[in-house]
Write a protein that binds this DNA or RNA. Structure first.
Lengths: 231, 231
DNA sequence: CGCGGCTTTGATGTTCATCAAGTAAAGTGG
DNA sequence: CCACTTTACTTGATGAACATCAAAGCCGCG
């Protein structure tokens, strides 16, 4: 038994406790056997909307964006996801093709499990099913909630929100490389690129943040929080 | 066996085929036994955000809105749901308290099942679990999709979208009583009440629709579709 | 019958998108 | 490796879309 786990080390994987805590050793082994781990470089597309869903895909490491393509040059970013956020899975059991695209904002690793195996496990193991349901509910709740939060705000409030999001939720520090372009920020908060830049420059002039290309330093967090809440 | 179903007629319920098709007779009976059916009048609140989740609630009949309260006078409507849309359930397995409020837009009937019983059924019956997962995925997909669709449009496009939504999806006729106030339309499309009224008056003047209080008649559907898509 | 909430229209103002133009950075092929 | 092209970034000027403010009529309800 233990040897089988060692082959792919799912049992050691941090995800086990979160995602697979109700799987038996045998079940875990069969999943490990079918599982593939795949690395992606920053910028690469992991899932393309419209392609058939035949795998269950989750993020093990890295940072990704979940988005919809509008046309050749424009997209709309729905959500940014870190490991365990589970968002790439929202439509996995409901459709034959993906509804959203996913691409890597940073070098990332995804685990890929055959969808039919996953469905079998769910059918055979109700406790595991309940775990999956809970995870999915949390994911959809948080996507909808953060989306509503952002979009209720005005331009300045949205920029503040995003800066605080990266600082507080993703990097846990005041100084970080922002993993998205100005254009992607615009696609995330549904504003124009020009206005994103304008407001960020404004924040820079007001000594609220410091900008060095992609490197952002939050100088006055209280003010940023204030702008975020006032928006 | 048959007698037990007759008591609460879950077995005959149209929902059975959709929601409970994988439940055994015994399981169905235990659910029926615990189930309560509750009618609500137009305008009544069915679920209040922040209250504890201890039931599994679904819409059997009627029309409801799913919304978040902003303050005492304002709300934001996330989605409108008809029977089988299942939306009131998005967070039911992930939280201890409701994230959204739900109220009746028309006289409605909801079925209420004890949440622990529901969880037991899921744990014991994986096929049922998979059904639930699929339903939830469809629900969250459609909420997110329609939200993005609407909000990409300009004011006129959003109004056209909503009018077409009620005509095509809900009432399946060109002439209907709109079940929401002007203010609620505004909350649904995230615009001001005044502008909702302004654009609807504009549509009236342009002979695209006819307005008689809450009674709307779509006179020129092609034009409305055009405005919706152009938005 | 009068009060509060919903509806309607008009006048005014703000916010944000669009257009334009230029610099910097990052790939790309000879 | 360097010219070349493309993509990202930045700032300013202008205009359009939408919010806000104001005022009045309407309707239901206590």
């Amino acid at each position: 038994m233990e040897i089988e786990f060692a082959k792919c080390n799912c049992a050691d994987c941090m995800l086990k406790s979160l995602l697979y805590k109700h799987l038996s050793n045998d079940e875990m082994a069969s999943m490990c056997y079918s599982k593939a781990e795949k690395p992606y470089r920053k910028g690469e597309v992991i899932i393309e909307e419209g392609t058939p869903i035949d795998n269950f895909v989750y993020l093990k490491e890295g940072l990704v964006k979940l988005f919809k393509r509008i046309d050749n040059t424009k997209s709309q970013i729905i959500s940014i996801a870190k490991p365990f956020d589970f968002v790439s899975l929202l439509s996995v059991f409901s459709n034959t093709t993906y509804n959203f695209s996913v691409s890597a904002l940073e070098d990332s690793t995804v685990c890929i499990v055959d969808l039919n195996l996953m469905k079998d496990l769910i059918r055979k193991n109700g406790s595991f099913a309940l775990d999956i349901i809970e995870k999915m509910n949390v994911a959809s709740d948080s996507i909808i909630n953060s989306y509503l939060d952002r979009n209720r705000k005005n331009l300045r409030g949205r920029i503040a929100y995003i800066l605080l999001y990266f600082s507080d939720e993703i990097y846990k520090t005041e100084k970080f490389e922002i993993p998205v372009s100005r254009k992607e920020i615009a696609e995330l908060i549904e504003m124009t690129t020009e206005n994103v830049i304008r407001v960020m420059s404004e924040f820079r002039k007001d000594k609220i943040i410091q900008i060095n290309g992609k490197e952002i330093t939050i100088l006055n967090k209280e003010m940023l929080v204030k702008i975020c809440n006032a928006g």
